[in-house]
Computed example of a mutant assay.
Amino acid sequence: MVSALIAQLKDQQKDAMRAKDKPRLGTLRLILSEVKQQEVDTRTELNDDDVIAILTKMVKQRKDSVTQFEAAGRDDLATKELAEITVIEQFLPQPLSEAEVNDLIDQAIADTGAAGMQDMGKLMGVLKPLLQGRADMGAVSGKVRTKLTA
């Protein structure tokens, strides 16, 4: 059983081929290649959550590359990476607002009874499946740390 997200990616790839949209097609092929590589490495069929984790990682890598390319004055390469980010983000869930993230953090603290920094791992374990691909986990970690030390 192929995940719905993988099926959607394959359909989009076919559409890009028909439209002769080379930049989009290249990005879709990169995504599907990453997914296939992960399936081969883990010897399992990926679900939508696994694919979202891969897409999130790909966006993060490209954002890091853009920063480095811009620092080196390579705007041509930065533009290419930004175009890939745009295509990849189309397959990620809608990002949560700042207020929604804060509400989820507060709810997780209440549910787990987290009282201090020693509960950070437990709290992040609860939050990660809820926020993966929908919020910057680094920023979430900082907010959790602030709330636990306050």
Results as ranks from 00 to 15, higher is better:
V66F: 06
E39C: 07
I52T: 13
K128L: 09
L96R: 08
L32W: 05
D103G: 07
L46T: 13
I52R: 13
M124T: 02
A16C: 04
E98A: 11
L9I: 12
R62V: 03
Q8C: 09
T149F: 00
R24V: 06
L32C: 09
A99H: 06
K63Y: 01
V87C: 10
I109Y: 01
Q90W: 05
K20M: 11
R74E: 12
P95L: 12
E70C: 04
A72Q: 10
T149V: 03
T42L: 08
S141D: 02
K128P: 02
V87P: 07
K80G: 03
R29H: 07
K22R: 15
V51I: 11
A16G: 03
T86L: 09
M137D: 04
M17G: 06
R29G: 10
A150C: 02
L25T: 05
V35I: 15
Q94G: 07
L130M: 07
G73C: 04
K36M: 06
E89S: 10
L46H: 11
L130A: 03
E45F: 14
T112M: 11
Q37L: 12
V126P: 00
D111P: 05
V87A: 09
A150F: 03
T67H: 10
E45C: 13
D103P: 02
F69S: 04
T27F: 08
D15V: 13
V51M: 04
D64A: 06
K147H: 08
D48Y: 04
A108Y: 03
L127T: 06
A114E: 01
A78K: 07
T44D: 06
T146F: 05
Q132F: 00
R134F: 10
K22A: 15
Q8N: 13
M17P: 00
R145F: 05
L96T: 05
G26C: 10
G138H: 05
T56Q: 09
Q94M: 10
K10Q: 11
K147S: 08
E34Q: 14
D48P: 06
M58C: 11
R29N: 14
L77K: 12
R43Y: 11
V144H: 03
M58K: 13
N47Y: 07
Q94N: 14
Q118S: 11
S97F: 08
V2E: 15
K20L: 12
R134L: 07
K22E: 15
V144I: 08
A114H: 02
Q90T: 08
N47F: 10
D106C: 10
A19K: 12
Q90D: 14
P129M: 09
Q61M: 08
D106W: 06
D76N: 14
Q68G: 07
F69P: 02
K122P: 00
K20G: 01
T27P: 09
R145S: 12
V51H: 01
